[in-house]
């Protein structure tokens, strides 16, 4: 544990060298240290007149306290073994009528894909949220989530950088006024990525493979088309995040190559759960969870038979995609045999 007395005596320049993330702390707390790189942090704070602090609505002691907390949180995050999730286990809770769920326990191992199906409002997103929160009988469903067979440390629930879960949700709009590059830089920073330049390059390349129309680093994120934003988000989730669990909530109407997107997201190291209404996505999974009235009603393994049907479905998807492309380019359609 770093203590404030360790930080106080360092020059700001040394502090930034040793703990680069301190830069964003100072920046966001409006502490302009440009001309104080040789000054110790303590002397820097001391040169403010109390009125200046009042002026900035800052509090010296609070800043010191926050800096120590921040540095320790970041260090512990960087030193942590990520990817230590071998499996997650869901223990049953209750459905919307308070009736116990219809399974004993469900363990999902690394590299498995699970789909979640059921009518709108049945509780698919709720199940994903239970996993993200690492539910411990403290959500409306009263489910319990185990990680590697044990109740996990719930202290990470509020961490903004140390996420066990990466979510890909229905909405993939952007509202920030930034270019693709600036945006990815910020995101990489928030995830404490070590070689941001290279990672950002890879994300944009992968996104351009997914999306039909290409975009470059200097495109404003708000100027991306729907398909481009989604492609960017999928590539970003796949490449930037080290989270061992990926949750996908209904990405079907995304105007992107779903199969390819999934390939990018899934790898040996990850656990993937996806809520979906799309039969081909549902069957790509190893197992599917059927949700009814808020509860897990059934768990079905995708069998050989269904894998054959999956091939047919994928064929149909191809036909639909091709028809769509032709219609878009102004052709008239003919029957395909």
């Amino acid at each position: 544990m770093i203590e404030i007395k360790d930080l106080e005596v360092m020059t700001i320049g040394d502090m930034e060298k040793k703990y680069p993330f301190v830069l964003s702390f100072l920046e966001n707390n409006k502490l302009d240290t440009t001309n104080f790189k040789e000054t110790t942090f303590n002397d820097y704070l001391e040169q403010f007149h109390p009125d200046e602090f009042e002026e900035l609505a800052l509090d010296k002691e609070q800043i010191k306290k926050n800096l120590v907390v921040f540095v320790n949180q970041m260090l512990s995050f960087l030193g942590m073994d990520k990817d230590t999730v071998e499996s997650i286990t869901i223990l049953p809770g209750v459905d919307k009528n308070g009736k116990r769920e219809n399974f004993d326990e469900l363990t999902i191992n690394k590299s498995e894909i699970i789909s979640i199906v059921g009518p709108t409002g049945s509780g698919k997103s709720r199940l994903l949220a239970d996993i993200e929160w690492a539910a411990n009988k403290d959500t409306p469903t009263m489910r319990t989530l185990l990680v590697n067979g044990e109740i996990p440390d719930h202290g990470n629930r509020f961490s903004t950088s140390n996420k066990m879960v990466a979510q890909l949700s229905q909405n993939m709009n952007f509202v920030m006024d930034l270019s693709v590059r600036e945006f990815l830089e910020l995101h990489a920073q928030s995830r404490m990525v070590e070689n941001p330049g290279e990672v950002i390059q890879r994300i944009v390349e992968a996104a351009n493979e997914l999306a039909g129309e290409k975009f470059d680093m200097d495109t404003p994120v708000t100027g991306l088309s729907g398909g481009q934003s989604r492609a960017l988000m999928i590539a970003d989730t796949a490449i930037l995040s080290t989270s061992p669990i990926v949750l996908i909530d209904e990405i079907e109407n995304a105007g992107i190559d779903r199969k390819r997107a999934l390939n990018l997201l899934v790898n040996e190291e990850k656990i993937v759960l996806m809520a979906t209404h799309d039969p081909s996505l549902a069957l790509i999974a190893d197992k599917r969870i059927i949700i009814k009235n808020g509860g897990i009603h059934k768990i079905i393994e995708t069998d050989e038979n269904e894998k054959v049907i999956l091939k047919d479905l994928e064929q149909m998807d191809l036909i639909i995609n091709e028809m769509r492309a032709r219609l878009r380019s102004g052709e008239t359609l003919e029957k395909i045999d």
Partner: peptide, 8 residues
């Protein structure tokens, strides 16, 4: 907004 934007 997107997940990435929420995180940032």
């Amino acid at each position: 907004v997107s997940q990435a934007e929420r995180e940032v």
